[in-house]
């Protein structure tokens, strides 16, 4: 079924919308959730929560593209669920991704007070611009790693690169992002 038709089903408040979403994007949502949570049980709950949130948000929302819309919901739900989990139980991929991303953050001295934290919209704009400036392959590697939380080995296999190549690429991209964030005065 076409994505536009599925969205129409949400707007018609037809329960078929959920089953069509599950059929078409269930695997996609599970992939995102599992990369964050690394637990089948948590993943299933997370995907179900995603469908509920999608049902509640459409209408009024009418997303231009359904997969990223669902993906964002899944990712947010999965990350929220992490807050409930003990840090020791945290997925190793998320742990690694968090440690890697820590490189991009300002030092303590450069941090602003809590109330000065940059507005999310500004950060989104800066990161979008940053991603747009990257070459296609570098951008895909970065998004796969820090948005989809994919393991390095999987990214390397998908893009027919070596693991080392992917790691070096990520390291350079993180350094660039750090410089950009510093330049923009963003401390998150």
């Amino acid at each position: 079924m076409e994505d536009s038709r599925i969205i129409e089903l949400y707007w018609e408040r037809s329960e078929m919308a959920i089953s069509e979403t599950e059929q078409k994007y269930g695997r996609y949502c599970r992939y995102i959730a599992n990369n964050v949570l690394h637990s089948d049980e948590d993943t299933e709950e997370c995907v179900n929560d995603t469908y509920v949130r999608a049902w509640n948000s459409m209408p009024p929302e009418r997303p231009q593209k359904l997969p990223p819309y669902l993906g964002k919901i899944t990712r947010n739900v999965a990350l929220d669920r992490l807050d409930y989990n003990n840090a020791k139980k945290r997925s190793p991929e998320v742990q690694y991704a968090l440690e890697e991303l820590a490189e991009c953050l300002c030092d303590e001295k450069g941090q602003r007070p809590e109330e000065d934290i940059a507005d999310s919209l500004v950060i989104k704009d800066v990161i979008d611009k940053f991603l747009k400036s990257l070459p296609l392959q570098t951008r895909v590697i970065f998004v796969r790693r820090y948005w989809y939380m994919s393991p390095v080995a999987e990214i390397a296999a998908d893009l027919k690169l070596s693991c080392q190549n992917v790691k070096v690429n990520l390291h350079r991209t993180r350094k660039k992002l750090k410089k950009l964030l510093e330049k923009e005065g963003i401390s998150v």
Binding site: L79, C104, S120, I123, K124, I127, Y146, W147
Partner: peptide, 8 residues
């Protein structure tokens, strides 16, 4: 930062 990335 990881959460902000969600909104790309």
């Amino acid at each position: 930062l990881l959460k902000e990335l969600t909104n790309i």
